[in-house]
């Protein structure tokens, strides 16, 4: 069944996307069109089929436990929006 405004609002909240009213409206229509397209999946019988997560069936490669990364704070924080005393600043986190 098609998505409602409430569904889109929930998804937008989960995805941390601030959708303005009219944009949410347009998005709702487009999302339902896209969902209509992917609905076709349901028709296929896939009982007993192993899901394919990776295109190649390789095993995880493990690296040796070595410290290889020097301190690069200076460079890594060059483009940071808000930094103080080496910390990234965000609006107060409430717990």
């Amino acid at each position: 069944m098609p998505l409602t405004d409430a569904d889109v609002a929930r998804l937008a909240r989960l995805a941390r996307l601030d959708l303005s009213g009219e944009q949410a409206q347009r998005t709702l229509g487009q999302l339902n069109a896209v969902l209509g397209l992917i609905e076709q999946l349901q028709a296929v019988d896939t009982r007993g089929v192993e899901p394919m997560t990776h295109p190649t069936d390789m095993a995880l490669r493990l690296r040796p436990d070595e410290v290889t990364e020097p301190d690069g704070r200076e460079r890594y924080q060059q483009g940071a929006p808000a930094v103080e005393q080496g910390l990234y600043l965000v609006p107060r986190v409430i717990e």
């Binding site: 998804l11 989960l14 996307l17 896209v34 992917i38 349901q42 296929v44 896939t46 394919m52 997560t53």
Partner: peptide, 28 residues
């Protein structure tokens, strides 16, 4: 933004099996 919302939907609780898992089986 559209694709983020679609992706969030197909992974979200209650839809994962019907969409994401089904798509991976189809991929196989």
């Amino acid at each position: 933004q559209r694709r983020i919302l679609v992706g969030t939907y197909v992974l979200s609780h209650g839809y994962y099996d019907a969409y994401y898992l089904q798509a991976q089986k189809l991929r196989r």
